[in-house]
């Protein structure tokens, strides 16, 4: 069974170059993020490159410091590496929370139908039209010293409805399939039908839901950081951009502080979107380049 899934995944990837490239970029980024403590250590050697005044301030990029140093004398490369890890973490936290909540709400609403669906769909709809970002600004300005996890939760509160809405529509169409009826006359219970008959067929949609929530969260946090309202104690890509703008880093020749985080974010955005589009191409026959297979 695991072998089969692996083979199926590999075949899917081979058939879609977009998906393959997107996944490859993501994989590299995740690896960098996972090994970021080691990489940071490797850059700094005996000194911690993220310590204030670890080096001289505003060093231009050179062999010792590939991306230079910032206004406090920290190594920008090390900062970028650990910031990438923070950005991916917030994406993962918010992605997981909103996917799980979205999937549960979608399945309950879509499968149960009736008044339960009515209430859940109305609630989902209400959350959908709330302008998220201004509210997020208000929330983080109000809550002093929010942690990364709290920001993740705040962002997920507003991003699960998107996942819920698309998945619910799919559940509605799948639940009246004859194979669901067959499972019911084979004494399968609701939960069993949902997990074994419906869920596997919805994996691509759940994947898309996860990717877009994660992306939303990463950029939500960047947005907060750029206006200086991010969580304390952590540096993410947005905060580096904020520092660069604030200190006029570009005029001091410290262009990597501004350019590198933006390039990384653009790459991340492109990669997640390529995965999204690739998954849709694979699972939506109408978008396939060539008919048949």
């Amino acid at each position: 069974m695991p072998m089969r899934i692996l083979i199926a995944v590999l075949r899917t990837i081979r058939n879609s170059p977009r998906l393959a490239i997107g996944l490859a970029i993501l994989l590299v980024m995740v690896l960098v993020a996972v090994f970021s403590p080691l990489i940071v250590k490797g850059i700094g050697g005996s000194t911690d490159p993220l310590e204030l005044a670890a080096y001289e301030r505003w060093l231009v990029p050179g062999p010792d410091h590939l991306l230079g140093t910032d206004q406090f004398g920290r190594d920008v490369l090390a900062m970028v590496v650990s910031a990438l890890s923070v950005s991916l973490q917030i994406g993962a936290i918010a992605g997981v929370i909103s996917t799980v909540v979205g999937v549960i709400v979608a399945f309950v609403a879509g499968y149960k139908g009736g008044w339960i669906d009515g209430i859940l769909s109305t609630f989902t709809g209400i959350l959908l039209v709330i302008p998220t970002f201004p509210l997020l600004i208000a929330l983080s300005a109000y809550a002093k010293n929010v942690s990364l996890f709290q920001v993740g939760v705040m962002i997920s509160i507003f991003s699960w409805p998107f996942a819920a809405k698309t998945i619910r529509a799919q559940v509605l169409s799948l639940r009246s399939r004859p194979y669901v009826d067959l499972a019911r006359v084979s004494k399968a219970r609701d939960l069993e039908i949902i997990t074994t008959e419906l869920l596997p067929n919805l994996l691509p949609f759940i994947g898309v839901g996860f990717a877009s929530s994660a992306l939303g969260a990463i950029f939500g946090l960047v947005g907060l950081e750029v206006i200086g309202l991010g969580p304390g104690g952590v540096i993410d890509l947005g905060q580096i951009i904020f520092n660069a703008i604030n200190t006029g880093a570009l005029t001091l020749g410290a262009w990597p502080m501004f350019v590198v985080p933006i390039v990384l974010l653009t790459l991340l955005f492109a990669a997640l979107n390529m995965v999204n589009i690739g998954l849709e191409e694979v699972y939506n026959p109408r978008l396939r380049g060539v008919a048949g297979e």
Binding site: P178, Y179, D181, L182, V185, P200, N201
Partner: peptide
């Protein structure tokens, strides 16, 4: 209920949709 389920079984119309394509 178990006896009823065992004793009353269907054959449906659409031989394509009756199988979950995943399995």
């Amino acid at each position: 209920y178990d006896a009823y389920r065992r004793d009353v079984q269907p054959v449906f119309q659409d031989p394509y949709a009756i199988f979950n394509p995943f399995y």
